[in-house]
Simulated assay, not measured.
Amino acid sequence: MTVRSADPLTQAGAISHLRQTPGLELVESPHRPGRGRVAVVLTHRLDDMTIVELRRLTREPGQRVVLVADRLREPELMAVLECGVRTIMWRSDATPSRLAQAVRAAAQGESHLPQDLLGQLMTHVGRSRRAAANALSPAVPAAGLAPREIEVLKLLADGMDTREIAAKLSYSERTIKNTISGLMNRLQLRHRAHAVAYAVREGYI
């Protein structure tokens, strides 16, 4: 295991704590990179130099990285994950025992992210999937309702019939009928009331 930090005091403190942990072999020399199965990287903020170091470390065969940071914004989180880092700890949570536990887990190939970073990651994945779906078919989402369909369903929910909706939206009655029929077939809805109920349940109206 190696410990790396741009702050000598931070590095010395982490080394002091980890050296006292049974079962962990510490390699301190900066001239022997990659000798440990786990590299602990401590940083106050993520900068370009840290990203370069993370990328270099994760490219070494068998090497795993535990990143200890003050905070990471979403773009920084994505950059860290793209480097191949799979274990991240907040500095405020990095007690000696927790840090040692994270090192052991990383050595066994396990991953760990704080709960708030997991939330950021899920939000990012969801946004990326929606963007991909819209790029493939911007007018009709792969699952769900298109803008025109939502407009029609809102007016159906207000009690309007096909003719009134057509007049309100400046479409032909045939267009409105086709819009309703299309969404009902795509989503396997039985009738117009079912379509309105679906839209309400899914939060469209």
Rank of each mutant, 00 (worst) to 15 (best):
R130G: 03
R174P: 02
A106I: 06
Q188L: 01
E151D: 13
G144W: 03
P114Q: 00
I15A: 10
A12D: 12
D93L: 07
H194V: 06
P75T: 05
V85R: 03
P22Q: 12
E110L: 13
P30S: 13
D70K: 05
T2N: 12
M1E: 08
V65N: 09
E28R: 02
A193Y: 12
D116C: 01
G203K: 05
L26C: 04
V3D: 09
S128V: 12
T58W: 03
R19D: 14
D158I: 02
G34H: 03
L183D: 06
A199Q: 14
P30E: 12
A195E: 02
E164I: 00
I88E: 05
I176F: 01
G109P: 13
R186D: 10
A12V: 07
P30H: 14
G109W: 08
R73N: 13
S137W: 05
T95F: 06
L72D: 04
Y204Q: 13
R71L: 02
L24E: 12
T87E: 08
M89N: 09
R56E: 11
Q108V: 07
R35I: 14
L118G: 13
A131G: 03
R104E: 14
A14G: 08
R129A: 04
D48W: 12
V52C: 08
T179C: 08
A14F: 03
P138G: 06
G84T: 03
A102F: 01
H191S: 12
I180M: 14
L26Y: 04
T95R: 15
S170K: 11
L18F: 00
M160L: 15
A14D: 10
G203P: 09
R35G: 11
R192A: 14
G182E: 02
L54A: 03
A139F: 10
R104S: 06
V140C: 09
Q120M: 13
R32E: 10
V85H: 07
R91Q: 11
R71V: 01
A6V: 02
Y198A: 07
R98N: 05
S5A: 14
E82H: 11
Q11K: 13
G119H: 13
R148M: 04
T123M: 06
V27C: 07
A132F: 08
G119V: 05
H44A: 12
Q115I: 10
W90L: 10
R174V: 15
A132N: 15
A143V: 15
L72Y: 11
D93H: 12
P33W: 04
V66I: 01
A157F: 01
P147E: 00
L42S: 04
L113N: 02
V65I: 08
L99F: 03
D48P: 03
Y171D: 11
A167V: 06
A131Q: 11
R129Y: 05
L9N: 09
T179Q: 03
E53H: 12
D161W: 07
T10K: 08
K154F: 01
L24Q: 04
R91S: 15
A6W: 04
P22G: 12
